[in-house]
Nucleic acid binder design. Structure first.
Length: 548
RNA sequence: UGUCCCAUAGUAUAACGGUAGUACGACAGACUCUGACUCUGUUUGUCGAGGUUCGAAUCCUCGUGGGACAACCA
């Protein structure tokens, strides 16, 4: 602990509470609704909630907010749990809001008895109409003043299944004129004759979020209930239920959700991308989902680092996606072994190298570990990157060009002698001569070269499919567009047949740096032919297209 | 024509009444058998107007700008 990192506003509150003895131990929770896959925005919340528990010696629960059986499913429960574990966190207890249905029901009865809740027979349209608008007060329902006995009977009958969906609701009796819409007699229970993924057909009435979340927090003795900004106006209601029920006083704190450039984050839009085939699925590497990032080659620690760096505050934000890329590069640069791969090959023939022989060159697996090496096959016929040759080189061009000299990484210095073109003007073959004294590690040539390029022995290469991923959108804030789907980047995925060093071992999830090309990871689609996903490019220091 | 939340470089985030700092980005240079990494440097900021104070990014007031709120969603 050399450097004191400044605290975010939630940490300040917690330290204050701990200092003042408000709490001896803190307890947080991560409360996903099991109706979708987790994304990088959830990661921010997960890292925050679990991080707080870890930092202050408290605990963090996982609680599924499963109060709407119509949209929820175990499929999501499983993927959510997998993603949280993968991110490196272990919850103290696993709960479901549905665990508390009986208690919640009793709470509702308590409020009815206190004259603070009533059964309303109005249609949802009527209720919406009487609710008023943010600038005009609402009207009280004609059913608002039923007797406690009648309410008790009706509510019991709701539970028993005497009514159809939508026929009745239970409402809190608060204030129809409140400037806060959420306090205008909010619905507590609605009737849904639906099968619940955990409680089955036991219930046909289900509590609303507002009547479930705070009480669930309270039941679990959550001290700091952290959620996003859109719940700020719910807080008075959150507090009201807890106060009227006289139960453990959990408190809600709100922070700004994550937004990221060139990314959409809402479940609805993500769902559209999947359902309309813009991506291959929830775990498509272009998706900001945890499973997508995982498949793309992001590591849990790089995501955690990212979440630490973006900070936690209350103002709307738009994080530059380059920060996410920076975090994964920073880690992979240290951990990913280097391998040579040519993604856009053109043939290089070394005219003065014996066509019947080949040799093995020694090359390092990590740039900072010179003793950690492997052997790479070399012959007179190599694949090199098309972009490493320029017929008419621009200024400051360090790579191959007619008459130019470059180092073949870990091999010889070569000089470009000639090249062939097809009728269409495409370079088909490049001819060079090598300088035997310039062999890597044993260079007595005295020649200084500006550039080093990578290569793969064409006589001893393995073919691989390489998927080059780019930003999914062409605009910084696609969610702000009329139709975000029109801004999907047509080049967000480019598939290449590439040549990779023979012997590159590959299990799904393995990370590599393809020298000078970027970070790649082995995809689960790999079979006889290996498939690599580009996690991210290397930072590009030279842009030939740019004049200055 | 309501209530609530928010406002610091391009983007985020610190400074808790006392020197406006850090990260990412961008740009320039050094180094380089990855034009990567690393290193060095540069650029750009307290929304506005008043007030309190010896002193205000910080406290107060009023503006301005942005966001949230009218599912039987969460």
């Amino acid at each position: 602990m050399t450097e004191e990192k400044s605290l975010n506003f939630i940490e300040e509150i917690i330290e204050e509470d701990l200092k003042n003895g408000v709490h001896k131990k803190i307890k947080t929770r991560f409360p996903p609704e099991p109706n979708g896959y987790l994304h990088i925005g959830h990661a921010k919340s997960i890292v925050l909630n679990f991080g707080l528990g870890l930092k202050y010696g408290g605990t963090t629960n996982l609680r599924f907010d499963d109060t709407n059986p119509v949209t929820e499913d175990v499929e999501y429960v499983d993927s959510i749990k997998e993603d949280i574990r993968w991110l490196g966190y272990q919850w103290a207890d696993e709960f479901y809001a549905s665990d508390y249905f009986e208690t919640l029901y009793e709470y509702a009865v308590t409020l009815i008895k206190k004259g603070l809740a009533y059964v309303d027979d109005s249609t949802s349209e009527k209720i919406a109409e009487e609710k008023g608008t943010p600038t005009t007060p609402g009207k009280e329902s004609e059913f608002r003043n039923r007797s406690v006995e009648e309410n008790l009977t009706l509510f019991a009958q709701m539970r028993e299944g005497k009514f159809k969906d939508g026929e009745k609701v239970l409402r809190a009796k608060i204030d129809m004129a409140s400037p806060n819409m959420h306090m205008r007699d909010p619905v507590m229970y609605r009737i849904k004759h639906a099968h619940h993924h955990r409680t089955g057909d036991k219930w046909c009435i289900y509590p609303m979020y507002d009547f479930a979340h705070g009480q669930s927090d309270s039941i679990e003795n959550i001290t700091h209930s952290i959620c996003t900004l859109e719940f700020v106006p719910h807080r008075p209601l959150y507090d009201w239920f807890i106060e009227q029920l006289d139960i453990f006083p959990s408190h809600q704190y709100e922070f700004a959700r994550l937004n990221m450039t060139y990314t959409v984050m809402s479940k609805r839009r993500l769902m559209q991308l999947v359902n309309q085939g813009y991506v291959s699925g929830w775990d498509d590497p272009r998706m900001p989902t945890i499973s997508g990032l995982r498949r793309k080659g992001y590591t849990p620690s790089s995501i955690r680092t990212f979440c630490d760096k973006i900070g936690v505050a209350k103002r709307e934000n738009m994080i530059d996606i380059s920060l996410l890329e920076f975090c994964v590069r920073e880690e992979l640069n240290q951990t990913a072994p280097r391998v040579m791969a040519v993604l856009d090959p053109v043939k290089l023939i070394i005219d003065n190298y014996d066509s019947d022989t080949s040799e093995y060159m020694e090359t390092e697996n990590y740039p900072n570990q010179p003793e950690n090496t492997r052997k790479v096959s070399f012959s007179n016929t190599l694949w090199i990157e098309r972009s490493d040759f320029m017929e008419e080189p621009v200024k400051k061009w360090f790579r191959l060009a007619p008459g130019a000299t470059v180092r073949l990484k870990s091999a010889y210095i070569i000089k470009c002698e000639s090249f062939d073109k097809d009728a269409a003007g495409n370079i088909t073959e490049i001819h060079a001569t090598y300088i035997p004294e310039g062999k890597s590690g044993n260079d007595t040539s005295g020649i200084k070269v500006k550039g080093t390029i990578h290569w793969v022995d064409a006589k001893n290469a393995q073919v691989a499919e390489v998927r080059l991923y780019d930003l999914l959108f062409t605009t910084e804030n696609p969610a702000a567009e009329e139709n975000f789907l029109e801004h999907v980047n047509p080049e967000s995925l480019i598939v290449k047949q590439a040549y990779v060093e023979k012997g590159t071992s590959a299990n799904p999830g393995d990370h590599y740096q393809f020298v000078r090309n970027g970070y790649f990871c082995v995809d689960k689609d790999s079979g006889d032919t290996l498939v690599f996903n580009r996690t991210t490019t290397l930072k590009e220091g030279f842009k030939p297209g740019q004049k200055k």
